[in-house]
């Protein structure tokens, strides 16, 4: 028990003062920079229809495989060049940010909700539910996610609903484990015992007392999971079983540019760099967040 008490002691002051956390976060310059980059990507995605210089699916047959503007043969019309169908890469990348972030957020939210709910229930009630869930989790952890995604996508063809399902299939397990562990610890904590003694209902104890205390580590995890999901989505799109082809997506663009990678390097390189940069920023931001919100994990 002593362990959980010390954890609570550590957690209490930080979780208590929001301004203090903010100060900590702002002090981490790398995390701030990363956060700004992430925001820029989000803005690019949200504003894509307004700021994209071209329709991302518009084909210009007279401008096929135009190199980026700084190369000879490049043009200021197509800043980052065009692909093998004469579509503007910059515009496609902006729209690609949109779908990447949208899917990432959707999947993270779904897995966060499902995982937290199940994890809290398992941690609080224990018993047969916990036992069954731990079997399910063991099974899912041993299951190669890509096979599930491939099987579903091969049958239905690329579509967003199936894609979200495939990405969320196993992603909730991480949240489940964190939520369950934290609830297990909190269940014995004084404040919960006090609430129980005062006759608080189970839903109140779970949602009103415990949940606020376990949110910080979940937020950190959600951020880091976002990075993984963006890569997973891009991988599926790269294999042609992710985002439908009518929606520009980075993974698809890398796949499209693959055959050209020697003669027209920019087609596959830029979207790859975009994935790298976004994921890198999300990771850095998530780690900064972790240092602030989840001191147990502080390095």
């Amino acid at each position: 028990m002593s362990q959980s008490v010390t954890e609570d002691e550590i957690l209490a002051p930080v979780a208590g003062t929001a301004p203090g956390m903010l100060r900590l976060l702002v002090g981490n310059r790398v995390a701030v920079a990363a956060g700004i980059v992430v925001l820029l990507f989000v803005a690019a995605g949200l504003l894509a229809p307004a700021i994209a210089p071209h329709d991302p699916n518009l084909q210009d047959p007279s401008a096929i495989r135009v190199p980026p503007f700084w190369q000879s043969g490049g043009s200021s019309t197509y800043l980052l060049g065009t692909d093998s169908l004469g579509r503007d890469l910059l515009s496609r990348m902006l729209y690609g940010a949109r779908i990447s972030i949208l899917l990432g957020v959707a999947v993270v939210l779904i897995t966060l909700l499902v995982g937290t709910a199940l994890g809290m229930a398992a941690g609080y009630f224990r018993g047969w539910f916990d036992a069954v869930m731990s079997r399910v989790v063991d099974t899912l952890l041993a299951f190669p996610f890509l096979i599930f995604a491939l099987a579903i996508m091969a049958a239905t063809g690329p579509n967003l609903v199936a894609l979200v399902l495939a990405l969320a299939f196993k992603g909730w397990v991480d949240f489940y484990r964190v939520a369950r562990g934290d609830v297990l610890a909190a269940r014995e904590a004084d404040y919960v015992a006090a609430a129980r003694g005062l006759g608080a209902s189970t839903p109140y104890i779970l949602l009103g007392e415990i949940l606020p205390n376990i949110i910080p580590p979940l937020i950190v995890l959600a951020t880091l999971r976002m990075a993984t999901i963006i890569i997973a989505e891009a991988s599926l799109s790269f294999l042609g079983i992710g985002v439908p082809p009518s929606i520009p997506a980075w993974g698809t663009m890398v796949s499209d540019g693959r055959a050209d990678v020697v003669s027209a390097w920019w087609i596959a390189t830029f979207p790859g760099l975009a994935i790298l940069l976004l994921v890198l920023s999300v990771n850095l931001f998530g780690e900064g967040l972790r240092d602030v919100l989840d001191p147990r994990m502080r390095r």
Partner: peptide, 22 residues
């Protein structure tokens, strides 16, 4: 290491093929 974590494997594979293979 950060780059390694953030890089999609398929893209790294393609780049390695082009640089070291070709």
């Amino acid at each position: 290491a950060l780059l390694g974590i953030s890089m999609p494997g398929f893209w790294l594979g393609i780049m390695l093929m082009i640089v070291f293979g070709l």
